[in-house]
Nucleic acid binder design. Structure first.
Length: 458
DNA sequence: CGCCTTTGACCTGCGC
DNA sequence: GCGCAGGTCAAAGGCG
C-alpha cells in the first residue's frame, strides 16, 4: 500500500492535521512539486519585475525621481523582506509538516508490524469445538500473506456496512427459511473448510457479523424498549423455563429488512426486559436505530477480536473473562460475551445502572427510554476505548461520525482492543464515561419518552 | 383499508 | 427415528 499525502489525509490524519493540510493546499504546497529553491526564484522574479517600471521612470525625471526612487527602493526592500519572511514561514511550516508525515509514517509502519504479528497468532489458534468467534479467528489457517491480511481487514471494515446491501439482495432471492439454511450452510462450510480464499473468508466474516446478536437487559415496565425502529410482531412462544412468553419482532422500516428482535422478560425478575437484536438493517436508519444496528456490528467485531490467551476451562471466552471478571469499577457482568449460543452474543446488562454512581458525576434517575441513546453512544464508547488504550487517533472523539467511517471506527477500535493489554481498564473507563454521559443527557432530555405499544401482551 | 397482533400449525435442529 | 424446543408462517381478527 502506497502512502501518499492524500491517503494520509483520508485515513490517518487527525482533524488538526486536516486543517493544516487545507491551509497548505491554499498555498499549493503539496500540489506544487517545485522545490523551495524554485519557489524562491519565482518570488525574486516577481519582485524584480515589479521593480523594472520604476527604474524606467527614474531615468526620465531626475530631481523628482530621486525622492521617488528612494521611496520605490524602500517599497522594494519592504517587499523583499516580506517575501523573505513569507519564505521563512513556509520553510518552517514545511519542516513541521515533514516531521508530521514522518511521524505518521512511523505509526503506519508500526501498525503494519503489529498486524504482521497478529495474523500468525490468529492463524495458529486452534478450534476444537470452540466458540464461533474463535473459529473465525482460525480462518487464516490457510496461508495468508500480510498483503492478503491487510486487504481482508480492509474488506472486513467495508463489509460491515456493505453487508446490509448484500443481505438485502439475498433476502429478495431466498425466502426466509432458505436464507437461514444458507446461513447455516455457510457456517458449516466455515468450520469444515481450511483452504478458503479471501472471498470465502469475507463471506464467513459477513455471516458471523450478520448473526452476531446484542442482548440488552433493562429494567422496564413497558413491553418494549424504544430503539428508533418500527417493529412488527410476527410470533410469540412460551419458552421452556420461563412463565413469560417470548415475542418475536421483525423490522418494518424497510422492505425485506432482515433484522429481528426477541423480547422476553427475565424469569428470575420479571421487571427485567431482555431484548435481543439480530441482523443488519438494509435501509437508512434514524440515529437511535442506527446506533443499535451498528452496535451489533461492533459486537461481532469485538467478538472477532478475541485473541486473548485462552483460558476456557470455565467455558467462557477469554474476552468474556475480561468482561465478566476483571472490569472495575463497572458493575460485574455489565457487558458479557457469550459463545455458547448458536451465534455469538453480547449482553449489555443495564439493570444495575440505577444503583451506579459513576465517579464525579451527578446522578440522574435512570430512564429506560434512553437505552437507544446509550447504545447510540457505542461509537463514542469505541472512541473512548481507543483513546484509553492510547492507540487510536483522537479524531474519533467526535460525536458526529459519518456513516461511512463507522466501519473504520469499528476496525480501529477492534485493533485497539486486540492490541491493548489494559483492555479491561480501558473498557471500564469507557463504559463509565458513557453511562455518565447518558445520565447527563437525561437531565436535559427527560421528555424523550419511550413509545409503547399498548397492544403488546407481554 | 392498511397495518398490526394473535395464535395454531408447521419447519428445523438437536439430543437421546 | 422420535420427541422436544426454538423459530417462523399465515390466516383471522382488531384497531385507528
Amino acid at each position: 500500500m502506497e502512502l501518499s499525502a492524500s491517503n494520509l489525509h483520508q485515513h490517518a490524519l487527525p482533524p488538526g492535521v486536516s486543517e493544516r493540510k487545507r491551509e497548505v493546499n491554499e498555498l499549493d504546497f503539496f500540489a506544487d512539486t517545485r522545490s523551495l529553491k524554485e519557489l524562491k526564484q519565482d518570488i525574486q522574479k516577481q519582485t524584480s519585475s515589479n521593480i523594472q517600471p520604476h527604474h524606467h521612470v527614474n531615468t526620465s525625471l531626475n530631481l523628482r525621481t530621486t525622492n521617488s526612487g528612494r521611496k520605490d527602493k524602500g517599497i522594494m526592500n519592504q517587499q523583499v523582506a516580506d517575501a523573505r519572511a513569507e519564505m521563512e514561514r513556509i520553510n518552517i511550516e514545511n519542516q513541521r509538516l515533514k516531521g508530521m508525515i514522518n511521524q505518521l509514517n512511523n505509526s503506519y509502519h508500526s501498525l503494519q508490524i503489529h498486524l504482521r504479528t497478529l495474523i500468525p497468532q490468529h492463524r495458529n489458534q486452534r478450534i476444537e469445538g470452540g466458540p464461533v468467534a474463535r473459529q473465525f479467528m482460525d480462518l487464516g489457517q490457510s496461508r495468508m500473506t500480510f498483503e492478503e491480511g491487510e486487504e481482508l481487514s480492509e474488506r472486513m471494515e467495508n463489509t460491515i456496512v456493505e453487508s446490509m446491501e448484500k443481505k438485502s439482495s439475498r433476502d429478495q432471492t431466498f425466502p426466509v427459511n432458505s436464507d437461514r439454511k444458507l446461513d447455516r450452510n455457510i457456517q458449516r462450510q466455515k468450520f469444515s473448510s481450511s483452504s478458503s480464499g479471501d472471498g470465502d473468508r469475507a463471506e464467513e466474516f459477513l455471516s458471523v457479523v450478520r448473526k452476531a446478536r446484542v442482548s440488552v437487559r433493562v429494567r422496564s415496565d413497558t413491553t418494549v424498549i424504544s430503539d428508533g425502529c418500527h417493529w412488527r410482531k410476527y410470533g410469540q412462544k412460551m419458552a421452556k423455563g420461563n412463565p413469560c412468553p417470548r415475542a418475536y419482532y421483525r423490522c418494518t422500516m424497510g422492505s425485506g429488512c432482515p433484522v429481528r428482535k426477541q423480547v422476553q422478560r427475565c424469569p428470575e425478575d420479571i421487571s427485567i426486559l431482555v431484548t435481543t437484536y439480530e441482523g443488519n438493517h438494509n435501509h437508512p436508519l434514524p440515529p437511535a436505530a442506527m446506533a443499535m444496528a451498528s452496535t451489533i456490528s461492533t459486537a461481532a467485531s469485538m467478538l472477532l477480536s478475541g485473541s486473548m490467551p485462552s483460558s476456557e476451562s470455565d467455558g467462557l471466552l477469554p474476552n468474556q473473562n475480561f468482561f465478566a471478571k476483571s472490569i472495575h469499577p463497572c458493575p460485574p457482568n455489565l457487558v458479557t460475551l457469550s459463545a455458547s449460543a448458536p451465534f455469538p452474543t453480547v449482553t449489555l446488562d443495564l439493570t444495575q445502572i440505577p444503583n451506579q454512581r459513576p465517579l464525579n458525576r451527578v446522578h440522574v434517575p435512570y430512564n429506560p427510554a434512553s437505552v437507544p441513546q446509550m447504545l447510540g453512544s457505542h461509537l463514542q464508547f469505541l472512541s473512548l476505548l481507543s483513546s484509553q488504550l492510547g492507540n487510536a487517533p483522537t479524531h474519533m472523539m467526535h460525536n458526529q461520525i459519518p456513516i461511512n467511517s463507522m466501519a473504520d471506527t469499528v476496525g480501529s477500535a477492534t485493533a485497539a482492543i486486540t492490541a491493548g493489554p489494559n483492555f479491561s481498564t480501558a473498557l471500564a473507563a469507557a463504559i463509565t464515561s458513557i453511562i455518565g454521559n447518558v445520565q447527563q443527557n437525561n437531565s436535559g432530555n427527560s421528555n424523550s419518552a419511550a413509545t409503547t405499544n399498548s397492544r403488546d401482551n407481554i
